[in-house]
């Protein structure tokens, strides 16, 4: 691909060809215990002004493409939250994988 045609960032998915032929699966399963806990953790940390939703998104967007697609939704959130807590010095970096 010529250098002057920008490639969208991984998360910037509108219209990309990769999923053009993928049906939208009617998945109505409610979030599991893991997802609900991560969701609540994000809200509690945001309520304590320790992170913003914008920082959460920036952290998710920094996940390498392979992992971004391999991880589930709340797994990506958790990666981002953990990175942010380390980045801010709130927890030690040995928390990270």
């Amino acid at each position: 691909m010529p250098d002057d045609i920008p490639v969208p960032a991984t998360h910037d998915m509108g219209g990309i060809a990769r999923f053009h032929c993928t049906p939208v699966e009617h998945d109505e399963a409610p979030p599991d215990a893991f997802g609900r806990q991560v969701d609540a953790l994000r809200q509690v940390l945001a309520g304590k002004k320790l992170m913003t939703v914008d920082e959460l998104r920036r952290g998710i967007e920094s996940i390498p493409e392979g992992e971004y697609f391999a991880l589930g939704y709340y797994e990506r959130w958790l990666r981002s939250i953990a990175l942010l807590m380390v980045e801010k010095g709130i927890v030690e970096k040995d928390v990270l994988p």
Partner: peptide, 10 residues
């Protein structure tokens, strides 16, 4: 470089 933007590419 590292950034966070809400303007989609398309």
């Amino acid at each position: 470089g590292p950034c966070h933007i809400r303007t989609p590419h398309y």
